[in-house]
Design a protein around this nucleic acid. Structure first.
Lengths: 222, 222
DNA sequence: GAAACGTCTTCAGGTGGCTGTCAGCTTGGT
DNA sequence: ACCAAGCTGACAGCCACCTGAAGACGTTTC
């Protein structure tokens, strides 16, 4: 997932960003209201973590303007104190959930998971190889440090076949079948080339070759 | 194979686990939905046996979230009663087969076999030597601790001949015949070499030499 | 429209695992 | 002790696989 974190506190922001990164999500961190609105305009996010107390205006206004634009991106509010009025205002303005500071990272994780599930987006990677998270139905993988790596459509198609049945050995023929939906034959080592490219992005050990049989995801890669 | 059993009933779970374990598979047993999801996240399985009625949520959700993640691990459902609606919902959600409780262990075995066969993996080892399972038509053997040992195609061919008729003594000539489909003569001790290589992987006692006659699989190896 | 860019496919040279061969050694029978 | 049969480490050749490069094609940018 792609997450926008709106938080002016350096310490807290850093902790949250790191933690959410570790869950395998791409995190942009906006430290002011202007920052946040610029980001929201430029990028489509799957989730927004929103602090209501910002130096240059209320976080609530960000949420309101989002919903005014009929943007239904899930928003989780982080309120500075357990102020009932804040929470009510936030939820009324269209927030999906809220957290009370000091933020417990485990709780944050659980709430992100719950909200995302409600929206049908994926928060759990289908697979983690070498600390690199692979997500289903997304042409992107996330490295351990949070950096995003984009996959081309063919690269992703190959990886998808391998990940769908993790413990199985998949033959080149099976992979080709998935790549070229009937008819469109290919007469060279295309699959080998894409495996090679995937290895460059995922790490050499990520995909195991079984000579004369096919390929398989390495299950033991830590 | 590595199997995840999701079942909250102690009695039934124990019986099923024991039975499946006897077939030579590694079985993890999850007794709750949370347990099951944690296991699925951490480990790649070849098969999931899924009870739909769990204390902390529906087993169907587990299946749905698996398929949402484009995970195609085979799933066999166990429904509490012969509820048509359950079965239909399960199959629609992407289950591969279903069992009706009370579970008949023989039927369970047959269905596991059928589902696995559809996916090209074998569930019944042709033979167990030294706690190492040998599967038909696969160039792979599995040690007692679950570690996999890959065989080269020639190694496999030799082992296959020996396993095909377990108690019989197979001559070198017969084995050579299987290795080199007519014409392609071999004029050295190739068979001896491959027996040696196999012994290195299977254990010294796995293959017995009958001087002047041929080889045979040791049946007494525990 | 032209240039810059990214993707897909093909090809060619390189690499490493698999294979068959042999030589020297071990084992079993007499 | 001797011989025949079998065992196994070493090695050269082969073939499956790997990978860098380049051309064809489509897309974006100016």
């Amino acid at each position: 997932m792609r997450v926008l974190l709106v938080e002016d506190d350096e310490m807290l922001g850093d902790a949250v960003k790191t933690h959410v990164h570790r869950q395998g999500h791409a995190v942009d961190w906006a430290q002011s209201r202007d920052d946040a609105e610029a980001s929201l305009e430029a990028v489509a996010y799957d989730l927004v973590l929103l602090d209501l107390r910002l130096p240059d205006g209320s976080g609530l206004d960000i949420l309101k303007s989002l919903r005014d634009r009929r943007d239904e991106t899930p928003v989780i509010i982080m309120t500075a104190h357990d102020q009932v009025s804040d929470r009510i205002a936030g939820l009324n303005a269209g927030a999906d959930d809220y957290l009370v500071k000091p933020v417990d990272l485990g709780e944050l994780q659980a709430r992100i998971h719950a909200v995302s599930r409600r929206y049908g987006t994926h928060t759990l990677p289908a697979l983690v190889i070498n600390g690199i998270s692979v997500y289903p139905s997304e042409r992107r993988i996330v490295a351990g440090d949070g950096a995003e790596i984009l996959l081309s459509s063919r690269e992703w198609a190959v990886l998808d076949r391998l990940v769908a049945r993790k413990r199985a050995i998949i033959s080149k023929a099976q992979i080709e079948e998935a790549l070229y939906a009937f008819g469109a034959e290919v007469e060279s080592n295309t699959v080998e080339v894409y495996v090679s490219r995937l290895r460059r992005k995922l790490g050499k050990e990520a995909i195991e070759t079984v000579r004369g049989v096919g390929y398989r995801i390495s299950t033991d890669a830590a």
